[in-house]
């Protein structure tokens, strides 16, 4: 391994070690939360709804829950990790090392990406035991989940870097992220909504992410797959470029 590879893997190991040390909170709790959703919306409420666009209600909901698990955990991991380290000034150890801004950004991003991916995978594995969950378009599914995971990882980094107190992270998650995800159609199809709510839902970027993941699993979508994938890739690229600039200039990291 080169020195740069050792640096990068050390930075990434530190990020993974952080969330694995508090796995009851960072892995256990989100898994339980997802299963509560499956229980409430699948078993309890789902028994009252026969099918949605030809799919059992619980099967229709699970793809969105998997995406939601990846998104929220990727975001909250990175935002919290960076803010915590900024508070303790422990981040100075990384910042004063020879690590480049790109190495630092990738390591911070991948920490949350991997945590989200782990929870999404565990959710998928367990859901597969409970319901018959098809995977119609694996390539689209993997691409979409990776892009969604990376998008929210980047968003977590952005909020973590900008945040000055834990309230800033909590605000972004509770008042922006969760409403966008919940109103993006995790638990329903936008076609069931009356106007203007259906149109408003189409203005929510998360709606297209959920559609992509749902298409990957079920083969059902309400939006253009190619266009959604392209726009998502563009958004990921733009967010990454913004974050890289913040790391290069040292915005709220270096004085």
């Amino acid at each position: 391994m080169t020195a740069a590879q050792i640096r990068f893997t050390s930075l990434l190991r530190r990020e993974c070690s952080r969330f694995m040390k508090i796995k009851r909170q960072t892995v256990g709790a989100p898994l339980l939360e997802t299963f509560l959703y499956i229980s409430v919306f699948g078993a309890a409420l789902g028994s009252r709804i026969s099918t949605l666009h030809g799919y059992d209600y619980v099967v229709f909901v699970v793809p969105g829950l998997i995406m939601m698990a990846w998104a929220i955990n990727a975001f909250s991991n990175n935002a919290s990790s960076i803010l915590q380290q900024k508070f303790q000034r422990a981040i100075d150890d990384q910042l004063s090392s020879p690590a480049s801004p790109l190495e630092l950004l990738l390591a911070f991003s991948l920490g949350g990406f991997l945590r989200g991916g782990l929870i999404a995978t565990l959710t998928f594995g367990a859901a597969s035991l409970l319901v018959d969950l098809p995977v119609d378009h694996p390539l689209v599914l993997v691409t979409a989940l990776f892009l969604v995971g990376f998008f929210f990882s980047q968003l977590g980094v952005l909020i973590g870097v900008r945040a000055e107190q834990f309230d800033d992270v909590s605000f972004a998650q509770t008042f922006v992220l969760q409403p966008l995800i919940f109103l993006g159609g995790v638990f329903y199809s936008s076609s069931l909504l009356p106007q203007p709510y259906e149109t408003l839902t189409h203005l929510n970027p998360v709606y297209y992410m959920i559609n992509l993941v749902r298409y990957g699993f079920l083969g059902y979508t309400e939006a253009s797959v190619a266009l959604s994938l392209s726009l998502l890739a563009l958004a990921v690229g733009a967010l990454f470029a913004v974050n890289l600039r913040l790391f290069r200039t040292g915005y709220k990291l270096r004085s």
């Binding site: 391994m1 080169t2 020195a3 740069a4 050792i6 640096r7 893997t9 050390s10 930075l11 190991r13 530190r14 150890d93 990384q94 090392s97 020879p98 690590a99």
Partner: peptide, 10 residues
């Protein structure tokens, strides 16, 4: 260990 890693130590 992590600090050594940040500086490229094996």
């Amino acid at each position: 260990d992590f600090h050594g890693g940040y500086f490229g130590m094996r």
